Computed example of a mutant assay.
Amino acid sequence: MARLSFGFFRQWVARRYKGGDAHSEYGSGSEAPVGATGRCGRRAVHHYFGRRHGSVPPLRLRLAASFWRRAAGLFLLRDMGPHEGLWLRPCSAVHTFGMRRAIDVVFMDRRGRILKTVHALRPNRAAWCARAYSVVELPAFYCRRHGRYDAALRRAMRAGR
Protein backbone atom coordinates (compact mmCIF):
# COMPACT_ATOMS: atom_id res chain seq x y z
CA MET A 1 0.00 0.00 0.00
CA ALA A 2 1.40 3.38 -0.95
CA ARG A 3 2.02 6.02 1.73
CA LEU A 4 0.10 9.25 1.33
CA SER A 5 1.85 12.44 2.33
CA PHE A 6 0.17 15.32 4.13
CA GLY A 7 0.71 17.57 1.09
CA PHE A 8 -1.23 15.14 -1.08
CA PHE A 9 -4.07 15.06 1.44
CA ARG A 10 -4.18 18.86 1.65
CA GLN A 11 -4.37 19.16 -2.13
CA TRP A 12 -7.08 16.52 -2.27
CA VAL A 13 -9.16 18.37 0.35
CA ALA A 14 -8.70 21.67 -1.49
CA ARG A 15 -9.75 20.16 -4.81
CA ARG A 16 -12.65 18.29 -3.26
CA TYR A 17 -14.15 21.18 -1.33
CA LYS A 18 -12.91 24.28 -3.12
CA GLY A 19 -12.46 23.13 -6.69
CA GLY A 20 -8.84 24.26 -7.00
CA ASP A 21 -5.27 23.78 -5.88
CA ALA A 22 -4.45 24.00 -2.16
CA HIS A 23 -1.94 26.79 -2.70
CA SER A 24 -3.91 28.85 -5.18
CA GLU A 25 -6.67 30.41 -3.08
CA TYR A 26 -5.41 30.37 0.51
CA GLY A 27 -1.63 30.31 0.16
CA SER A 28 -0.13 27.57 2.29
CA GLY A 29 -3.51 26.37 3.54
CA SER A 30 -3.19 27.73 7.10
CA GLU A 31 -5.34 30.79 6.36
CA ALA A 32 -8.36 28.77 5.20
CA PRO A 33 -11.60 29.90 6.83
CA VAL A 34 -12.83 27.70 9.63
CA GLY A 35 -16.03 25.84 8.83
CA ALA A 36 -16.33 27.14 5.25
CA THR A 37 -18.65 25.27 2.98
CA GLY A 38 -17.57 24.05 -0.42
CA ARG A 39 -19.39 22.49 -3.34
CA CYS A 40 -22.74 20.84 -2.60
CA GLY A 41 -22.86 22.54 0.82
CA ARG A 42 -20.45 20.05 2.39
CA ARG A 43 -18.38 21.24 5.30
CA ALA A 44 -14.62 21.60 4.85
CA VAL A 45 -12.08 20.19 7.28
CA HIS A 46 -11.99 22.23 10.51
CA HIS A 47 -8.71 23.76 11.64
CA TYR A 48 -8.07 24.52 15.29
CA PHE A 49 -5.69 27.43 15.80
CA GLY A 50 -4.10 28.55 19.07
CA ARG A 51 -4.99 25.66 21.37
CA ARG A 52 -4.93 21.95 20.74
CA HIS A 53 -8.33 20.34 20.46
CA GLY A 54 -9.43 19.19 23.89
CA SER A 55 -7.07 21.41 25.87
CA VAL A 56 -8.24 23.47 28.82
CA PRO A 57 -8.71 27.24 28.35
CA PRO A 58 -6.38 29.40 30.46
CA LEU A 59 -7.28 29.50 34.13
CA ARG A 60 -6.84 32.70 36.14
CA LEU A 61 -6.21 32.36 39.87
CA ARG A 62 -6.44 35.15 42.42
CA LEU A 63 -4.01 34.62 45.29
CA ALA A 64 -5.26 35.10 48.84
CA ALA A 65 -2.14 34.91 51.01
CA SER A 66 -3.02 37.31 53.85
CA PHE A 67 -5.29 36.44 56.75
CA TRP A 68 -8.00 38.93 55.78
CA ARG A 69 -8.11 37.87 52.13
CA ARG A 70 -8.38 34.21 53.12
CA ALA A 71 -11.09 35.07 55.66
CA ALA A 72 -13.11 36.95 53.01
CA GLY A 73 -12.62 34.14 50.50
CA LEU A 74 -15.16 33.97 47.70
CA PHE A 75 -17.55 36.34 49.47
CA LEU A 76 -15.72 39.22 47.74
CA LEU A 77 -15.59 37.44 44.37
CA ARG A 78 -19.27 37.29 43.54
CA ASP A 79 -18.56 37.79 39.83
CA MET A 80 -16.17 34.87 39.42
CA GLY A 81 -15.96 33.84 35.74
CA PRO A 82 -16.07 30.28 34.39
CA HIS A 83 -12.25 30.11 34.20
CA GLU A 84 -11.36 31.96 37.40
CA GLY A 85 -10.55 30.67 40.84
CA LEU A 86 -9.27 31.64 44.27
CA TRP A 87 -5.96 30.25 45.54
CA LEU A 88 -5.84 30.16 49.35
CA ARG A 89 -2.31 29.75 50.71
CA PRO A 90 -1.73 28.48 53.41
CA CYS A 91 -5.03 26.70 53.97
CA SER A 92 -6.20 23.17 54.68
CA ALA A 93 -9.97 23.60 55.19
CA VAL A 94 -12.75 25.57 53.52
CA HIS A 95 -16.45 26.13 54.12
CA THR A 96 -19.36 27.36 52.03
CA PHE A 97 -21.51 28.78 54.87
CA GLY A 98 -23.43 31.77 53.60
CA MET A 99 -22.61 31.12 49.95
CA ARG A 100 -25.30 30.80 47.29
CA ARG A 101 -23.54 28.48 44.86
CA ALA A 102 -21.55 25.26 44.86
CA ILE A 103 -17.80 25.24 44.19
CA ASP A 104 -15.09 22.75 43.27
CA VAL A 105 -12.30 22.53 45.84
CA VAL A 106 -8.81 21.23 45.08
CA PHE A 107 -6.43 20.54 47.99
CA MET A 108 -2.68 20.59 47.24
CA ASP A 109 0.56 20.04 49.11
CA ARG A 110 3.58 22.39 49.20
CA ARG A 111 4.90 21.07 45.87
CA GLY A 112 1.59 21.69 44.09
CA ARG A 113 0.53 18.04 43.87
CA ILE A 114 -3.19 17.42 44.09
CA LEU A 115 -4.11 15.53 47.26
CA LYS A 116 -7.90 15.70 47.13
CA THR A 117 -10.62 17.12 44.90
CA VAL A 118 -14.14 17.84 46.13
CA HIS A 119 -16.57 18.21 43.23
CA ALA A 120 -19.48 20.66 43.63
CA LEU A 121 -19.25 21.36 47.36
CA ARG A 122 -22.77 22.60 48.09
CA PRO A 123 -23.58 25.67 50.21
CA ASN A 124 -23.44 25.33 54.01
CA ARG A 125 -20.88 22.51 53.91
CA ALA A 126 -17.21 22.16 54.89
CA ALA A 127 -14.28 20.22 53.45
CA TRP A 128 -10.73 19.68 54.70
CA CYS A 129 -7.56 17.74 54.08
CA ALA A 130 -5.07 17.44 56.93
CA ARG A 131 -1.96 17.22 54.70
CA ALA A 132 -2.92 20.15 52.44
CA TYR A 133 -0.89 23.36 52.30
CA SER A 134 -3.03 25.28 49.82
CA VAL A 135 -6.53 25.17 48.38
CA VAL A 136 -7.94 26.29 45.04
CA GLU A 137 -11.64 27.14 44.87
CA LEU A 138 -13.11 26.88 41.37
CA PRO A 139 -16.60 27.23 39.87
CA ALA A 140 -18.80 24.17 40.31
CA PHE A 141 -18.14 21.31 37.88
CA TYR A 142 -14.96 22.95 36.48
CA CYS A 143 -12.91 19.83 37.27
CA ARG A 144 -15.41 17.49 35.63
CA ARG A 145 -15.82 19.62 32.52
CA HIS A 146 -12.06 19.86 31.99
CA GLY A 147 -10.37 16.50 32.31
CA ARG A 148 -6.90 18.08 32.34
CA TYR A 149 -7.65 20.65 35.04
CA ASP A 150 -4.44 19.68 36.87
CA ALA A 151 -2.32 21.04 34.01
CA ALA A 152 -4.36 24.25 33.94
CA LEU A 153 -3.84 24.61 37.71
CA ARG A 154 -0.07 24.18 37.38
CA ARG A 155 0.12 26.82 34.63
CA ALA A 156 -2.02 29.27 36.58
CA MET A 157 -0.03 28.72 39.78
CA ARG A 158 3.26 29.36 37.96
CA ALA A 159 1.84 32.59 36.52
CA GLY A 160 0.46 33.72 39.89
CA ARG A 161 3.59 33.29 42.00
Rank of each mutant, 00 (worst) to 15 (best):
R69P: 11
H46M: 06
L121N: 03
W128E: 07
T96N: 13
G20C: 02
R100Q: 12
R155D: 12
V13T: 12
V45L: 05
M108D: 10
L153E: 06
F75T: 09
A44K: 04
I114Q: 09
A36L: 11
G81P: 01
R62W: 10
G50A: 10
G7A: 10
A140C: 08
R78H: 09
T37W: 01
F9C: 12
R78G: 15
M80C: 14
H23Y: 13
R89A: 12
D21N: 11
L74N: 10
R62F: 15
E31V: 04
G20Q: 00
R39A: 01
P33N: 01
L153C: 09
V135A: 07
L153F: 05
E25Y: 03
H53K: 07
A2S: 14
F9P: 02
V135I: 06
L61G: 11
V56F: 09
W128M: 05
A156W: 04
V94H: 06
A132Y: 09
P90W: 01
Y142A: 09
R161K: 12
A32V: 08
M108C: 13
F107C: 05
F9Q: 13
C91Q: 11
M108W: 02
R101M: 03
A36N: 03
G112L: 03
S24R: 13
W87A: 05
G147K: 10
S30F: 04
R89F: 07
K18M: 02
R15A: 00
A102H: 05
S66A: 06
A120Q: 07
R43E: 00
H119P: 02
A72M: 05
K18G: 13
T96L: 11
G35F: 10
P82D: 15
G38F: 06
G35E: 08
R60T: 12
H53V: 11
R155Q: 14
V106F: 09
S24E: 12
N124F: 14
A151D: 14
G20E: 02
P82G: 10
G73N: 09
V135G: 04
G98M: 02
R125E: 04
P58F: 14
